[in-house]
Simulated scan of single mutants.
Amino acid sequence: MARSEHLTTPVDAVVSRMRALDAALPERDGVAVFNRVYLAVTEEVDRCLDGGGFADPRAAIALDVRFAERYLAAVDTAAADRRPPACWRPLFQLRRHPGVRPLQFALAGINAHIGHDLALAVVDTCRALGCEPAELEDEFDRVGDLLTALEERIRDDLMPGPDLLQIADPLTHLLGSWSLERARDATWSAARALWTLRRFEDVAEEFTERLDAAVGFAGRMLLTPLTD
């Protein structure tokens, strides 16, 4: 596909792909849990685009599509029995583990996608549009705000009831170990660093690999089985 065509890929196409995954995957599957979360975010982005919620719709579409394509590429890689990026491996490896709770699957997917994919998507978008990361900061922040609002709803929807979630529950400690706000801040710093390093391919590649591994390690901790 030519780059100019790629830039005009509608968010609707990404939404359609996620809806197809939602229909095909078992409800309790860990990837399905995250996919439902991400589908809701992407639908909200689409509504914001239609409603004029982005100052630069072209940049917002480019960032959103490149962001989504990294997740969908990981799905395709796993489906082909190949190794997805390290950040996604814990979710695909533990997607059917009965001891992992739905909230863990959702947060592990968000961790992989925000912590790794978003930084690379910012760089991809800057290259495609011929702009600097600072010129995408408004779109980055707007998508981040949508994710933050959705994360609060996710916790409400997927959190066990008060009678099940006691202070000693291991899930309480896992939830306290990860913050979307901190992940967003780290991702923006990573995107700026990668953009600065783009002329030094070896260093940029090493930085990307280490970022991937670190995010994967955090995801593995989030997916610690809490029951057998």
Rank of each mutant, 00 (worst) to 15 (best):
D163L: 15
A119W: 13
R36I: 14
G51A: 02
G51P: 00
V41S: 09
H116L: 10
E137L: 00
N35T: 10
A191L: 11
A190R: 13
T172C: 14
A186M: 09
R58A: 15
V203Q: 12
R155Y: 03
L25E: 06
R155P: 01
F67I: 00
R17G: 04
V122A: 02
L174C: 07
L49R: 06
L94I: 02
R28C: 01
A20H: 09
C131F: 04
E151T: 14
V14M: 15
R142M: 06
V41E: 10
I114E: 14
R184I: 05
C87M: 07
A80N: 14
A193R: 12
D145T: 09
F34P: 05
R58Q: 12
G51E: 11
E27R: 12
N111K: 10
A191M: 06
V45T: 02
P26W: 10
R47Y: 02
A191R: 02
D124H: 07
G219Q: 10
F54N: 07
V37G: 13
V15D: 09
S4N: 07
A204T: 01
E43L: 12
E151A: 08
T196I: 15
E69K: 11
V14P: 08
P57K: 08
R70C: 01
R82W: 05
A13F: 01
A218L: 12
V37L: 14
D185S: 13
G115E: 09
G216E: 01
L120A: 03
E132V: 09
R47W: 04
L197I: 08
D124Q: 08
P162I: 01
V100C: 14
L146P: 02
E27A: 13
G53R: 03
L120T: 09
R198L: 01
